[in-house]
Design a protein around this nucleic acid. Structure first.
Lengths: 221, 221
DNA sequence: GGGCTCCATTTTGCATGCAAAAATGAACTT
DNA sequence: AAGTTCATTTTTGCATGCAAAATGGAGCCC
């Protein structure tokens, strides 16, 4: 089994919320499950700890990282900064084909919005932001963005998505696409900052979902 | 020996350029030197690989990461974005004491500039940027910034620091300090972007120093 | 002489083993 | 009955061992 695969699988387990934040990571159990010994598992845990998904306690094992409100705010701030940077860079480099792709993803997302399918809407939303980051043509940026968004997604939260907020988000996305098409980097950076600021406000208002709880009606996958 | 210590020591070895970029990392030798077995060493190498300092080749061991011109450009771009973000955030949160500290570091740096001590100047320069990032009060940002700057420093380069360029850099730093004191976040972000853009141009013009070579008169430590 | 093949050596990747530290729990004291 | 202490069990962290893969080089073919 390749090292990277182990890291990926444990990351997936964490992102799926199978091990709730703050919970101990059962070394032996994961070994059995992944059919590996403790050595590669521990290597993977160290890597994930460096990524911020796992918390290592000396002589006390590893726990799934628990994110405080402050951590969340910090992550959103950085995410915002990275997206704004990506937007600016993307405007300099993005190809027409890439713009078309994002435009397609956008109208797809709007379709889900019209249908009221929040889950699919979020999926499309993520795809668009990821496409912009990719279009920036900067692998370093892609890596950091992936790390930050992974940690954000790790702390699954509920957003009380009111029709007004949702409409605003869609409108902002229209503006994002528009700025991209005009290749207006500065304008796009502005919009992206505002876009994430709104999102962040939602999150902080909503607080966090108890990961153990099953009473929540909506989770963002 | 604590795991983190091993990571730190190997990172230091890499940053010191003791193992040149692209060179194989001699596992056994490092084991002997650090008085540890291969298990914790390999864990540390995996972590450093996740950080981008080490390149892991399946069944072929690990090499010190070799950065191409493109990698450097990417790193500088992201570094610029992070510093601009830090500047904006710092303006919202920085205390007077922190500003005083940066001001002191600044005049210290200017002193080294007047004395023509480029090495000390760079040290001061770094201290100021790090202080700004710290003042942003965002540990996530601090972590990403550290990772990016470590990789940049890893690829030691020479800058053909002409008096004009140097004077410009100092002037920009004056403006940075000024914006901080006025807590003008947007303005600071602008200046920081321009500041790093100038630096980036220098770097790309200069190309990279051969790390093995000793013929170079200046290295940035 | 150049290039290929095959085998010995080295190195990597993982499993296992062992000592030390923490968690557990039972007995004992108050 | 609650708290404390100490021994047992479990878990962690690291060293070591072993099989598989890669490296290097001698011999061989063309």
């Amino acid at each position: 089994m390749l090292h990277e695969e182990v890291v990926g699988r444990i990351r997936a387990i964490l992102l799926d919320g199978e091990i709730p934040p703050g919970a101990r990571i059962p070394e032996r159990e994961l070994c059995d499950r992944l059919q590996i010994s403790r050595t590669p598992l521990r290597e993977a845990l160290k890597v994930l700890a460096a990524e911020g998904l796992v918390q290592l306690l000396p002589h006390r094992g590893s726990r799934a990282a628990k994110l405080t409100d402050k951590d969340m705010r910090d992550l959103f701030e950085v995410c915002q900064g990275l997206e704004a940077l990506a937007g600016e860079l993307a405007c300099e480099r993005i190809t027409d084909a890439e713009i078309d792709e994002i435009a397609a993803a956008h109208s797809d997302m709007v379709k889900h919005y019209r249908e009221g399918d929040l889950i699919q809407y979020y999926r499309g939303n993520r795809a668009i932001h990821e496409a912009i980051v990719t279009a920036a043509g900067n692998p370093v940026l892609v890596g950091l963005y992936a790390s930050v968004t992974a940690r954000i997604r790790r702390a699954r939260y509920v957003t009380p998505m009111t029709p007004q907020r949702w409409a605003l988000a869609v409108k902002e996305h229209e503006a994002i696409l528009n700025a991209l098409q005009r290749r207006d980097g500065v304008g796009l950076a502005h919009i992206l900052r505002a876009h994430l600021r709104h999102k962040r406000e939602e999150v902080l208002q909503a607080g966090f979902a108890e990961t153990e709880g099953s009473e929540l009606t909506l989770r963002i996958a």
